[in-house]
Computed example of a mutant assay.
Amino acid sequence: METKRRKFQGVLNILSFNRHFYVVGITTLLIIISSQLYFQWSQSLLWVIIGVFLYGLLMPLIVSAYVYDFSGYYNFDWLKPLQLKDSEEKLVLNINAGFDETSYILKKNLPKSKLQVFDFYNAEQHTEPAIVRARKVSLTYPNTLQIKTNHMPLKTDSVDYVFLLSAAHEIRSFDGKVQLLKECHRVCKPNGKVIMVEHLRDFPNFLAFSIGFTHFFSKNHWEEAFKTAGFETFNETKFTQFMSVFNYQS
């Protein structure tokens, strides 16, 4: 399977999956501008409102282009410092939320290891238009299994590396995250690793996504979830100012 990405694929995905947001935003802005025909707006206030709308509409696209199209995220260079061993004895688990852009690339980076892919997408719980649209165009890795977040059909202490790449935040409740992470802890071998990549609910992502940064969760939130699930050691490295790579060890 070809893993080379098209130019601007990341930002085009964001624009496509969240087009409802842009339709509403642009429509609202046009209504505000058109209202000048009937109301006497302060020109200064009008330009401030236009600036705020344009910032809110364009900045997420600019940051997404930087992170997903120009930073090398999908080259997986950020994985090299983790020094993961690749061998036929290794079992790697990649867990997604219904949109899989990484399994083929992950297999390319760990070609000898066995790769199993799980999808915890739940149509009743994951109803946001963006993820519904993303699922329709997602690649499906061979033998991908649909799972519930509280159960993985794997033996205890059987997995070397678990990947959660921009997926775990789709579980909105704290308890739901802990359920998934407890299963990750159960299936991981002693000294197995969980590698999670996420945007955080922090200041850089607020500047990037404005109110949209509430779709993500804080570093403290994730630390508490992993500790509750039984993980003892972890570290965080930044991949650009907007994404964090967490390395948790059972």
Rank of each mutant, 00 (worst) to 15 (best):
V187I: 14
E223M: 08
E224S: 13
T214G: 00
I211R: 06
R186G: 11
C184G: 07
G192S: 09
R186W: 09
F217V: 07
H185G: 04
S218N: 14
V197L: 03
M196N: 04
K227N: 14
S210K: 06
E236W: 13
T233S: 14
F203H: 02
K189D: 05
A208H: 03
G230T: 06
E198P: 06
T233N: 14
P190A: 02
E224H: 09
L181C: 02
R201A: 02
K227M: 06
P204G: 05
G230V: 11
C188N: 10
C184V: 13
K189C: 04
H221V: 12
C184N: 13
M196S: 03
W222Y: 15
G212Y: 06
V194F: 01
V194H: 05
F226S: 09
A229S: 09
E198H: 01
F206I: 01
G212N: 11
K182Q: 14
V194Q: 04
R186T: 06
A229H: 14
N220M: 13
F206G: 01
K189Q: 10
E232Q: 15
F209H: 07
D202F: 00
I211S: 07
F231S: 09
P190W: 02
E232G: 06
C184Y: 12
F231M: 14
N235L: 10
D202A: 02
E223T: 13
T214Y: 10
K219D: 12
F234W: 13
K193Y: 03
M196A: 05
H221G: 11
L181F: 14
E198Q: 00
H199F: 12
T228L: 09
G212L: 12
K193W: 01
A208S: 10
F213N: 02
I195D: 05
I195A: 00
V197I: 07
F213P: 04
W222C: 03
K189Y: 02
F234Y: 15
F209G: 01
F217Y: 12
A208K: 03
C188D: 07
I195Y: 03
N235K: 15
E232N: 13
D202W: 02
H185E: 05
G230L: 07
E183R: 11
V187S: 08
K182W: 07
V187C: 11
M196I: 02
G212W: 10
L181M: 15
T233I: 04
K219N: 13
E224M: 13
S218R: 10
N191I: 00
P190R: 07
A225T: 12
E236S: 13
P190S: 09
E198G: 00
E183H: 10
N220I: 05
G212K: 05
E223A: 10
S218Q: 04
